[in-house]
């Protein structure tokens, strides 16, 4: 039972990170119809920002928000420089463009920083853990779960109660009508990228906090998983992204914990296989987006 609780806590922590990433992807997708492959590189940039802050000797409490800010700025720049010229193109064009941006950034990291993994200096406290009876929970896990929940609540508030948030929700349902209502496309899209950058930044900090290192490809695999989480949840649906993220976290952790040893090498393949099987049952995802199947004819 203890093992189960322990693993469930791990799952919430990992799933929370996936959820943050998937949410960032879903916000962009719902508004622009774009699958942003370069989302992972925002995470990596956050990691490098943390690394340099550590080298300069900035305390983590300042370094973390700063690194997230860098991710936001990077996301805005990415939109302005790389994605604006192709904004109204087909989904395939947007996807390929972002894929190219991701690869270019990865190669830049390799050349400008290092192709190898770099250590990130973190406060010792993060590595410690708290004991409840026989359970031991890492500080970074507690932090990760708390921060994820806070961010989700804040984002929910933002989307429901601010003008920009409401404009973004409206744009997610029908961008052209929203524009006709006088909402500026640039503002909505920039807002979406800022939020998505912030989410990638937070996820990046949480990821690095657990691993204490950063490498040029750090963001690639988690974001790949977040894509999968986003379609599992229902592509374009924000609630779905969160649900899909947590679901994938649970699937992965439980497989890692309970799969017999000789099947362990196939763990990731199996996890994705389960997701694809779930999609067979619900092709539009767990929580389908509002406009799925409502295309006007």
């Amino acid at each position: 039972m203890d093992v189960f609780i322990q693993q469930s806590i791990n799952a919430v922590s990992l799933g929370g990170t996936y959820a943050l990433l998937a949410l960032g992807l879903a916000i962009i997708f719902s508004i622009m119809g774009m699958i942003n492959f370069a989302h992972g590189e925002l995470m990596t940039i956050t990691g490098y920002a943390l690394m340099y802050c550590g080298l300069v000797g900035l305390p983590f409490v300042i370094a973390a928000p700063f690194a997230i800010l860098i991710a936001v700025v990077a996301a805005l720049l990415m939109e302005r420089i790389a994605f604006r010229p192709v904004r109204n193109s087909s989904g395939a064009t947007l996807l390929v463009t972002s894929f190219a941006v991701a690869v270019i950034l990865q190669t830049l990291f390799q050349n400008l920083v290092s192709p190898r993994s770099q250590a990130v200096i973190l406060p010792d406290m993060l590595a410690q853990s708290v004991h409840f009876g026989s359970l031991s929970i890492g500080i970074n896990q507690i932090l990760s779960i708390t921060i994820t929940l806070v961010i989700l609540v804040l984002l929910n508030w933002f989307l429901r109660h601010t003008i920009l948030g409401m404009a973004m929700r409206a744009a997610a349902e029908d961008f052209s009508i929203t524009r006709l209502m006088g909402v500026r496309a640039n503002a909505v899209i920039a807002g979406a990228f800022a939020i998505s950058g912030a989410l990638a930044g937070v996820a990046g900090v949480l990821w690095v906090a657990q691993r204490a290192s950063v490498d040029p490809l750090m963001g690639f695999i988690p974001v790949l998983k977040a894509f999968i989480a986003a379609i599992l949840g229902g592509l374009g649906s924000l609630t779905g992204a969160v649900a899909g993220g947590f679901a994938l976290g649970f699937i992965e952790i439980y497989l890692a914990a309970y799969l017999p040893d000789h099947i362990q090498p196939y763990r990731e393949a199996l996890a994705l296989g389960i997701v694809i099987f779930l999609l067979l049952l619900r092709p539009n995802g767990l929580v389908p987006a509002f406009n799925v199947g409502r295309e006007k004819v």
């Binding site: 894509f227 592509l235 090498p265 994705l272």
Partner: peptide, 30 residues
């Protein structure tokens, strides 16, 4: 049979999943 049920971007991501799965299986099937 699975992928043809998905539309557009969802199908693309599912193919991404396929790549990761097969990569994992090739490594696993030592």
């Amino acid at each position: 049979i699975v992928i043809s049920r998905l539309d557009g971007s969802s199908a693309t991501i599912a193919t991404l999943g396929l790549l990761v799965i097969v990569h994992g299986v090739i490594i696993g099937a030592r």
